[in-house]
Design a binder for these strands. Structure first.
Lengths: 224, 224
DNA sequence: TATAAATTTTGACAAGCGACAAATTACTGT
DNA sequence: ACAGTAATTTGTCGCTTGTCAAAATTTATA
């Protein structure tokens, strides 16, 4: 792990106080997403940010509020990538529009893998962090996906599977980037390479917009 | 959290020492999978197991070796579900065989959600735990999936996507069960209900054995 | 039953944790 | 330059962490 993330996270035209806050947020996002909340200590965050001990408490009030601030900042990164997408897609015909949205979402998941890491992490057990995430971000994201799904079904662009399964399939499409360390050990390649990201985006779009065979259900039952 | 997991994990015909070990392993699997390695303390495991402090160190030597023992036990649970599957499927015709294997794998992921939780957790950043998992289990699992994929492609049962992406879809198909707490908050339902597990198994099988349109690639490029 | 081994229990330690308080330095507006 | 405030720095607190050590107890063997 690099000794100091401050220099990377710093904007030049900002005051020292704001630079401290930004460095802390960048370090917090990285450590919370890599290690989880409980396993990340305030001293560790401050060390990675290259700032003095106790500055997190001063600027953010405490570990809990700091985590929420990290989530807001992280949502900002993701939102900046996803917000223009709906506008860009509004003139595309239904089937290609769904594929376009899916590909852009997968690319955003690769560009900001911290989001998927934290969702996989916090979604496992209930608590105040999961409740906060659901209330502030996850619920509205699910509603957005539900709208895309509805339109995709009406135009027959999306196969006949339940919304819930469609949602979790899409949400899990970031697993390849979330598990980038395993990916490297297993394949020897970098999951964030452009060609790899495109391959994943295309594959997800292919699978989620393919027509399914309608004759297999009976055969399934015979083997169960 | 229940105060004591020992009574559940105990076999009756076993000696006290073995019962202590089993209770510790059951508690360890649960806590490591829910909270991760660093966030789980030895005292917490011992308390959930309903045994005295320091018995983990005595029976397993230390936290690291105890974690490995938990992984071995967890692999045993998963293996017991997956081992008979290949034998059962060897007379099914290729396309239905792939669907059968996928559905059984998804159901096993639901029956033992701890596996997916730990893989999502440890796959994020490199270290001795990820290396150990890859060397002992993940690599051979990947090879098995690669073999299924190869046969599935030859019989045209699996759509034309790269192996790596196929593998990570399948691995990520357990995300719905791994994130069961989020699932409950988001949908109000229990992800482990039989009907829900079957729906996911069928949906994954449908998506991974559907034929894709071959005419969309050019249209994709037009929007990028 | 006597003896040794295995297992359980209790005690203690250095190190790290989040948080609070106070002292010091840097910045702001007048 | 000055006062007032913001920001940084240092010190400390009670608590938990993983681990080692030793005493007490239970189990196995002769």
């Amino acid at each position: 792990m690099s000794a100091n993330i401050g220099a990377l996270a710093v904007g030049d035209g900002k005051g020292k106080s704001e630079r401290t806050r930004d460095a802390l947020l960048a370090a917090g996002i990285r450590l919370f997403s890599e290690q989880g909340y409980d396993a990340t200590s305030t001293r560790q965050v401050e060390a990675l940010a290259g700032v003095q001990r106790n500055l997190m408490t001063y600027h953010f009030g405490g570990k809990e509020d700091f985590w929420k601030a990290c989530m807001v900042a992280l949502n900002g990164r993701m939102g900046a990538l996803l917000e223009p997408v709906f506008d860009q897609s509004k003139d595309i015909e239904p089937r290609e529009r769904v594929r376009f949205l899916i590909r852009r979402y997968v690319r955003a998941s690769a560009a900001v893998p911290e989001v998927a890491r934290i969702l996989f992490d916090e979604g496992r057990s209930s608590g105040w962090r999961l409740e906060w995430l659901v209330d502030n971000y996850i619920r509205s994201f699910f509603d957005t996906i539900a709208q895309v799904f509805k339109e995709g079904r009406q135009s027959n662009a999306i196969p006949d599977i339940p919304l819930i399964n469609f949602y979790y399939f899409l949400a899990a499409s970031g697993a390849m980037f979330s598990m980038s360390a395993e990916f490297k050990l297993l394949t020897g390649k970098d999951a964030f390479e452009d060609a790899m990201v495109d391959a994943q985006a295309n594959a997800i779009a292919d699978l989620l917009t393919a027509h399914t065979h309608t004759t297999v259900k009976a055969a399934d039952a015979a083997n169960d």
